[in-house]
Every structure is written in C-alpha cells, then in structure tokens.
Write a protein that binds this DNA or RNA. Structure first.
Length: 500
RNA sequence: GGUCGGUUGGCCGAGUGGUUAGGCAGAGGUCUGCAAAACCUCGUACAGCGGUUCGAAUCCGCUAUCGACCUCCA
C-alpha cells in the first residue's frame, strides 16, 4: 500500500514526497496572529488547516515540534497616510492603554477562540517582544554579512544586493528580479530613506511619541515585522527545519523577506517545505480585517448577523472548513453552513452508532469486508495526499452508509470479520477526533441531568401510549416536542431524541 | 497596469487524459400506525470557442468572467 506523505511545496510549486531532516521528527513553524484586534473567521481557518497538518503528522507517528508565534510588535500599518504606525501601538493610543494590555487582551481572545475550535496548542508559542535581544543580534549579523545598511538609526535589508548575489529573492512569490530593478528607477524618489523600494526595515528608529521602544546599537527603536519569524524559527527549530506554514497572503512580502533574512544570516533558506493555506471568502471576497469584509466567530455562534438565518456551532464551522482543501479558497455562505451542519450530524450519528455496535459473531472476509477495508485504506491515502481532508471525508461518508446499513440490517455482519469491525471503529475514532479534531456535540443530551431525566420520562410515557396504539397521545407528544425543536426518532430499539 | 490562480450539476466542494468523488437540497421507492431517521435508485455537471489525441472536465491557445498578490492582512 502506498501511503507516503506528499505535500505541495509552495516554493517549488510541486507536490513532493515529505522527508523530514531528522527521521521521525518534524519541525514546523506557522505564522501566528498579530494581536491588535479580535480574530476573525479567516484567521481561524488558517489555524484549523495547520492544526490538521499538525495532528496528521502526529498520527503518522512523527514527533512534532510545532512553533506558532504571536506578533506583538513591529507590524506597521500599511496606509501611507497614517505615517506607518505600529498596529499595536496605534490601538494602544486609541484606547489609552499600555501596548501590553492590548496584546494581552487580544492574545487571550485568540487563545479562547482556538480552544473553541479545538485547535491544539503549539509546542512553543513565542512572542516577538520576548526576543528583542535575539532580534538585535540578527540585525547585527545581517549588517556584518553586508546585506543591510543603516540610515538615520533605522536598519534596512538590502534586497537589491541580495537579489544580485543570490538568485532567490522573489522565487516564493513569483516575482522577477528584473521587475525589482525596473521599479528602482520609477519609484526611488518616493522612498524616504531606503536605497531601493523593495528594501525593508529590520530595525526601525522610534518616533518620540512611539510607545514600544528598546535600546539598540543603532537607535532606540523596535524590530521590523519580518525579523521575528526568522529569529524565533531559528532559535527553536534551528537554521534549517522542515515545514513553514502561513496564510497565502503572507507569501509576499512577509515570507519572501523571511527567506532573505535567513540567507542574510545563515546563507540558506530556513525550511524545506513551504505550505500556504488559502483564504476564506465572504460574499465572494477575501475576508479581511483591514477592509471590513469579515465575520466574527461569535456572530456565527449566536447567529446574530444579517447574513445568517441561524446559529452554527464551532464544530459545524470546523467541519465546514474540512470539506474543502486547505489550499483552495472557501466561500462562506449561510446555505453552505446549513449543508455542513447536516453532514456533520450525519457523520457524528454514524460514529455513535458504530461505537455502540457489537459484532454478532462469526463473519467471513467477503466482498463487504474487502470494501470496508479498502475505504479505510483510502481515507489514509487521501490524507497522505497533501492533507486532502475533503477526499478523506468522502471516504468516511461511504463508510457511514455501510455502518447505517449494518445497523438497519441491509448489510449483514456475517460478511465482515470482527477484526474489520474493530478496525472500522478505531479508524472512525482516529479520524474524527485525532486527525480532524472534531468534538462530539451532544444532540441527544442537554448536559443537564434534570432535562435528560425528564426526556426519558416523556419518551417512556409515549412508548406506553404507542404500545396501546394510542397514536393521538403519541403524536401529540412528538408534535409538542417538535415545537421545542426536539426531534423524536422511533427506531427498532425504542425512541431517541435530539436537539434541532 | 504587472504577476498568479479560479470558473465543476440547484448550493458547497474533490478530482485531473478513458472508470461513482462526497455533503446538502430535489425526485421515486423500501421500512414505519403516520412521520422522522435509515437504506436503495435517479439527475448523466465540468465558463465559451478552437486545437492536440483513438479519446479531454482534465493538455495547449484564445475569449469572457471572478478573485488574489503587487501596500497591512491568516
């Protein structure tokens, strides 16, 4: 069975067989959020995507050191008119708080949201402000290596020189050196201190009113945004590690510059595989904080948005995300979420049915047995094919039909061995919980003992009515419960209930 | 304007030279006191035009259209 992991490497633009630097171990770095406002759903998608990558690598038996940073300084506003203010410093000024209060508040919010989405915590979550000395050191090394220059207390990376010396600048984002050179003549006059428009700051001299500032050999200032990732990935994963992930919108300039910095320090690229998650769309356009086209997770969970007809639970949203490939754009719509909710429930119901299923004994490995084993194998192959969750999910849904047929009697246990049933149980459990990171939301339990007890009493009374063929009472109970959004399902072994 | 990527049945969304993706919705049927659930069957989709090929949704070209990046973004 071929089941070796292949990943799409954004750097080469090809799907490649994944080979870790150290056997059995994986070093993975993912760009985390800048904590200057609440996380929106687009952010969540990226972290869910890499959460599945993290989980699957572990499932395959790799020991993974997963580093995901928190950006809490250095990320400048892009708008020229505002004078390139640090995002966190700006928020602090507007809200009259310490920058670190801003950072703490939104970092807490971010962590809560990751928990809600059942995103596993990384092994290390370093913060940029916690690595100022290391960043100063790296700036010095880049200066020593002749790939940066000082201007009025700020330090800039010399992309022009780097591009001429090493033919790598622009590879990741598909930019051409010739364009950079052409750009220099046209736009140079607009650049204040930089020698070249594509040069970027690795240390920035702080304006007098700037709140976040540290001493350095060049000025009292703060580090450039791109630098932290080079510093922290190198510190915790080494000069060369396996996987670097992030949203596709970070390819340029962030990741391109990160690569440049690593060359500036170590003379080599930081990692072997670049993985980029694609954007979550909302109304057909990229969900983005800065242009206001976004929906907050909270609005989804409460259903309080003009774009939604109802509330959706976190796991429904997670399932919705898993239904597309991480490298494809995904368009969020109310209709699609409704479909996802039904699908998620169907999957989880089948899981429950399966868990309670016992083999009737005997059973031979016939066609059904082979088919089920084939689908189980297929699900793994799907995941090993660049973490193709929608394909793996499709394989699981084929198995859902088998499970329900076994329960309903359309298929017989005599056609599969007890071992296969056990394997099926284990696979479902592993995929749904360990790999997909879904949680079982109790639709047939309120989490409240009193309510569950009352429900049981009601269903018992209804059963008595049904035994007496008192359909009027039976239907009255069912209809009344339906009004309360509780659905009663009559099965062979009595009735069950679930919340709307 | 430059660069890149989409365009798949009613909706979402995989696939990528010949063989069923899957989910949701819809139609018919089985089961059931009825219903729900479940199971079975069904639609014969790949933006348009041209080309390559025995054969293309899948490769090539052109056109249309949407989007992303080029400036902060996950």
């Amino acid at each position: 069975m071929k089941n070796e992991l292949q990943v799409f490497n954004s750097y080469s633009g090809k799907k490649e067989v994944f080979k870790p630097i150290h056997e059995g171990q994986v070093g993975m770095y993912v760009c985390g959020p800048t904590v200057y406002s609440d996380v929106h759903l687009g952010n969540c998608r990226t972290f869910v995507s890499f959460d599945v990558v993290y989980r699957y690598l572990q499932y395959l038996g790799y020991k993974v050191r997963y580093v995901r940073n928190i950006t809490d300084v250095g990320h400048l506003e892009g708008d020229e008119d505002t004078g390139r203010e640090d995002k966190i410093a700006k928020k602090a000024r507007l809200e009259q708080l310490e920058p670190m209060e801003i950072v703490q508040r939104y970092m807490n919010g971010f962590h809560e949201m990751m928990k809600v989405f059942n995103v596993a915590a990384p092994a290390i979550e370093p913060r940029a402000t916690g690595h100022i000395p290391e960043q100063i050191e790296m700036v010095q090394t880049i200066l020593d290596n002749g790939l940066a220059y000082v201007k009025n207390g700020s330090v800039y990376f010399d992309t022009f020189k780097f591009a001429k010396e090493k033919n790598v600048y622009g590879t990741l984002s598909g930019r051409k050196i010739e364009d950079l050179i052409a750009e220099s003549r046209a736009n140079l006059k607009n650049q204040d201190e930089k020698n070249h428009p594509s040069d970027f700051a690795i240390w920035i001299k702080a304006a007098p009113e700037h709140l976040m500032r540290w001493n350095s050999p060049w000025s009292v200032g703060f580090p450039g945004w791109h630098l932290e990732c080079s510093v922290m990935s190198t510190k915790y994963l080494g000069e060369k590690f396996d996987i670097h992930g992030g949203g596709s919108d970070l390819k340029f300039p962030h990741h391109e510059n990160e690569i440049a910095q690593n060359y500036g320090v170590c003379g080599a690229a930081p990692c072997n595989y670049w993985l980029h998650g694609n954007m979550l769309l909302f109304n057909g356009k990229k969900m983005s904080k800065s242009d206001g086209n976004s929906i907050m997770p909270g609005e989804l969970f409460t259903g309080q948005s003009s774009h939604l007809t109802k509330a959706y639970s976190p796991m429904v949203v997670r399932f919705f995300m898993l239904q597309s490939h991480y490298s494809s754009t995904l368009d969020l719509t109310d209709e699609a979420l409704q479909a996802a909710e039904k699908g998620y429930r169907r999957l989880m119901e089948a899981l429950k049915v399966l868990q309670e299923m016992t083999h009737t004994g005997g059973g031979s490995a016939g066609a059904l047995d082979k088919e089920i084993n084939g689908l189980i194998d297929l699900a793994s192959e799907d995941m090993s094919d660049d973490f193709n969750t929608p394909k793996a999910l499709a394989s699981l849904f084929e198995l859902v039909t088998k499970i329900n047929s076994l329960k309903g009697g359309q298929l017989s246990f005599s056609d599969l061995t007890p071992d296969t049933l056990e394997r099926l149980k284990k696979t479902f459990n592993d995929f749904i919980f360990d790999i997909f990171g879904l949680l079982a939301e109790n639709f047939d339990s309120s989490g409240n003992g009193v309510v569950d007890g009352l429900m049981q009493l009601i269903l018992d009374m209804r059963q008595t009515a049904r035994t007496n063929k008192d359909w009027g009472t039976s239907d009255k109970i069912r209809d009344a419960l339906k009004e309360l959004e509780i659905v009663v399902k009559d099965g062979k072994d009595g009735a069950t209930w679930s919340k709307g």
